[in-house]
Write a protein that binds this DNA or RNA. Structure first.
Lengths: 203, 203
DNA sequence: TATTATAGTGAACGGACGGTCACGTGTCAA
DNA sequence: TTGACACGTGACCGTCCGTTCACTATAATA
């Protein structure tokens, strides 16, 4: 119960910051959440702001190694149905993983106060998703599964509505089932609109 | 400089709450922003929390009279191009009107802390938009401008990406021009995909 | 064994916070 | 003229905030 204290503090900070925001969180409660008293916090961090900065460092690093580098990309689906399956798997993860949910809430709350949070929020909510799906859709077009079109535009048209419903899950968890159902319905609508009827395309 | 003080306090509160959040705003600065000293605030509101509640009352009432009641709906476009024009007009308003922008930021920041903010956020960011566009698309289908489909699904597929880019404007105002350009591009993509080539439909 | 580093504590700090109050105005009705 | 009221102020209150510090217990090092 010694060296991991720092990490436990960061975990508690993510929890509390994501719920009450930076300004709405105080060191006493944060310390209590890890079984310490407030003065002990300063053995591990030199200020409340440093906790915030290290937490953001961590989130940025995690995002980078998880989505940033080339070719951690999922495989190109072989059928339209596979796209739906893959999508629902991703959604299920992102909606149920505690740390991912808390990270999203944190970025939502603090995006107007901190520049690094602002930049990471744009990645999480917008560019990151299209960057993942544009190459997928491009590959599916090559396989003749989707009609030829601008992959980036398709990726945007596909991910933005899904992202909106993920935000709904964050905001109103009791609507999660409904939201996930709507995501699947939207995904099927999407393949109905953009999918090619025939799976072949001459050279 | 007497009776409108209350309203000026509310305007300043919207401004500061939307920037720094409820917890990050203090009465002294809020009072100074309207040229008062903090003790004077309590002639108009009995607590900081009451300011918050009245402000939310106001936002809910404004939303209700603006979008809530039946038939404040825009007219059904007669051409696909008109849909683009109408959309861009709405977007321009919602991105440039100071109070609308501040309201959106406030709801974004406080949606996890206050239940009424939570509910209003869902209206602003999700259901309100689809409720406006579903009947529009339904009407356009009747006119043979859009292919027959579920109007609610189309409205969702149309408004969610636009909403995502409006959020981008709120978050990174320097990207506004780019974002608005992308909205128009998306709108044209949408009518290219869902629009009927011929403007007639037999009975 | 003596020394040093680490992790934790309680008490205390100055300052900022939300809120109260006695008081001074100006306005307006009786 | 008087009284009541609305609005604004400076001084002040208790509390909570982030932070510091002298101190202790423990465990590794020499």
């Amino acid at each position: 119960m010694a060296k991991d204290t720092k990490e436990r503090i960061l975990a508690a900070a993510l929890d509390m910051f994501s719920q009450n925001g930076y300004a709405g969180t105080n060191i006493r409660e944060l310390a209590a959440a890890v079984g310490l008293v407030k003065s002990s916090m300063y053995k591990h961090f030199e200020s409340k702001e440093e906790i915030w900065n290290v937490l953001l460092d961590q989130m940025i690093a995690y995002y980078g190694e998880r989505f940033g580098s080339a070719e951690r990309l999922p495989p190109i689906p072989d059928t339209l149905e596979e796209l739906v399956t893959m999508t629902m798997g991703m959604v299920s993860f992102t909606v149920h993983d505690e740390n991912v949910v808390k990270t999203r809430k944190l970025l939502t709350i603090e995006q107007f106060r901190d520049d690094r949070a602002r930049a990471l929020a744009t990645k999480h909510f917008l560019t990151g998703l299209t960057d993942i799906f544009a190459p997928i859709f491009s590959g599916m077009m090559d396989k003749g599964l989707l009609r030829r079109d601008d992959p980036a535009m398709l990726a945007f048209a596909y991910t933005a509505p899904i992202s909106a419903l993920i935000h709904l899950c964050d905001r109103e968890p009791e609507k999660e089932t409904e939201a996930i159902g709507r995501i699947e319905a939207f995904s099927r609508h999407f393949i109905a609109v953009y999918g090619e009827k025939k799976g072949s395309e001459g050279p």
